[in-house]
């Protein structure tokens, strides 16, 4: 039984990596179908935990979920195999494309098509941001962090002042912790749930 786990993990992740378009959130649905519904390797509740962890830790959601599920099934080797399986299809496909992409772009029609496609990408980034805004828990604090980040980053970029994205992310996290500490102090011991 265990001896079959490693190849199954690898090929299942390979399949998911090969057939999911649209990034992490689309992949979570496929992972659930494979590992909860079909193989019953994970309980629904544990899967929700995996999804929550994958979303709130840094890095690609798909890689996070693959590493976690692989480790749960077959330890470190399982996590390596699952992550490799998830990464390999993208790697091969994109590497192949990158070899001839510049030549492809030098065709006039293709270059024009990509001038249009660039606009679609901008639209996709904007709508991803708005979608996340819709899902965001809206408190005065989250609005303040969002607007400060948005206005700060746009202004500094236009002024050609370089401030790393990492600084914004860490500042956001620190502000979150600061708010929690202040609340805890104010409510005495009770304020554990921020």
């Amino acid at each position: 039984m265990k001896s079959k786990t490693i190849p199954t993990l690898f090929f299942t992740m390979l399949k998911i990596g090969l057939f999911t378009f649209g990034g992490g959130y689309a992949m979570i649905a496929l992972l659930e179908n494979e590992f909860v519904t079909k193989r019953r390797w994970l309980e629904q509740e544990e899967f929700l935990d995996v999804a929550a962890i994958a979303e709130s830790t840094p890095g690609p959601i798909a890689i996070n979920s693959a590493t976690y599920i692989g480790f749960k099934q077959a330890g470190i080797l399982g996590s390596v195999v699952a992550t490799l399986g998830m990464t390999l299809p993208s790697f091969c496909i994109i590497y192949a494309i990158s070899l001839f992409f510049d030549a492809f772009l030098s065709l006039t029609a293709v270059a024009c098509a990509f001038r249009g496609i660039q606009i679609a990408v901008l639209y996709l980034i904007l709508s991803a941001g708005l979608r996340m805004l819709k899902k965001m828990e809206k408190t005065p604090f989250s609005w303040a962090v969002l607007l400060l980040t948005l206005i700060g980053m746009v202004t500094l970029t236009l002024l050609s002042v370089k401030l790393s994205t990492i600084v914004y992310i860490l500042a956001g996290g620190v502000a979150g912790v600061a708010l929690w500490l202040i609340r805890r102090l104010r409510h005495g011991k009770k304020g554990g749930e921020a």
């Binding site: 709130s56 980034i125 941001g129 708005l130 805004l133 980040t149 992310i169 996290g173 502000a175 979150g176």
Partner: peptide, 14 residues
Amino acid sequence: LGGIRPCVVGLILA
């Protein structure tokens, strides 16, 4: 994480 989440939304929009 509660502080990072709105920050990421701000970064994407920016």
